[in-house]
């Protein structure tokens, strides 16, 4: 096909494009995978039995807002990196600052507790499964995030994959917080954060291959 034929064909099939097409695709892709991840959590792990009581306590809302802020920042990162020349500096700054605040809160809580409780605060009752469960719940979201980016135009593929992975991890951690009954800040600061970062790493590694266009 000659270039002129191609141009004629592309002009013939032109449709108007909304200014919000990119953000709509990001929200739709991640939203659908959020539903998939939530269903998976429900079937596999189940909601915590004491959800109504927990909803009146501080630790529940700490997890809720910690993961929600990370999820929002990482979703914005996916939106930004979907454009050629896109950069995720601002989002990474917000994510880093949020994690730092969480670590400070954890240290404050430890400082107010006797040293013999430190280990219990770090290990809780679910240390063996917390990060693993979050990573599992992030898999449908990672697929969704990478699908979102494949239809757009990221030019730095590893960074784009990392953004999709961080978003997947953060949203999965948000979903998981409705199952998890841990309440100590140090536990959240370590294992939830790891649950966000591991999918980010998986995304960075696979993105280089999966995201090519």
């Amino acid at each position: 096909m000659t270039t002129n034929d191609l141009i004629a064909r592309l002009s013939a099939e032109l449709k108007p494009v909304s200014r919000f097409a990119v953000i709509r695709r990001v929200l739709m892709g991640l939203g659908l995978s959020l539903i998939a991840s939530a269903v998976l959590m429900w079937m596999w792990l189940g909601m915590r039995a004491d959800l109504a009581d927990a909803a009146t306590t501080m630790p529940f809302w700490s997890k809720f807002f910690y993961t929600l802020i990370l999820a929002a920042a990482a979703t914005w990162a996916v939106k930004r990196i979907a454009h050629p020349l896109g950069s995720i500096g601002v989002s990474l700054g917000v994510i880093a600052a949020t994690i730092v605040v969480m670590i400070i809160l954890a240290l404050v809580q430890m400082a107010m507790s006797p040293p013999e409780e430190y280990m219990a605060m770090l290990k809780g009752r679910s240390v063996a499964v917390c990060t693993f469960n979050i990573v599992m719940l992030s898999l449908p979201l990672l697929v969704g995030g990478l699908w979102v980016l494949r239809g757009l135009a990221p030019t730095r593929l590893a960074v784009a994959g990392a953004a999709a992975g961080l978003a997947a991890g953060a949203i999965a951690a948000f979903v998981y917080s409705f199952h998890c009954s841990e309440s100590a800040m140090p536990f959240i600061a370590v294992w939830y954060t790891l649950g966000v970062l591991v999918p980010g790493l998986i995304g960075a590694i696979t993105g280089r291959y999966i995201l090519r266009w």
Partner: peptide
């Protein structure tokens, strides 16, 4: 390359 780039411009013009 010209044709590939034109295709990419077309399918990803929303970005």
């Amino acid at each position: 390359l010209v044709q590939e780039t034109l295709m990419a411009l077309h399918t990803r013009r929303a970005t």
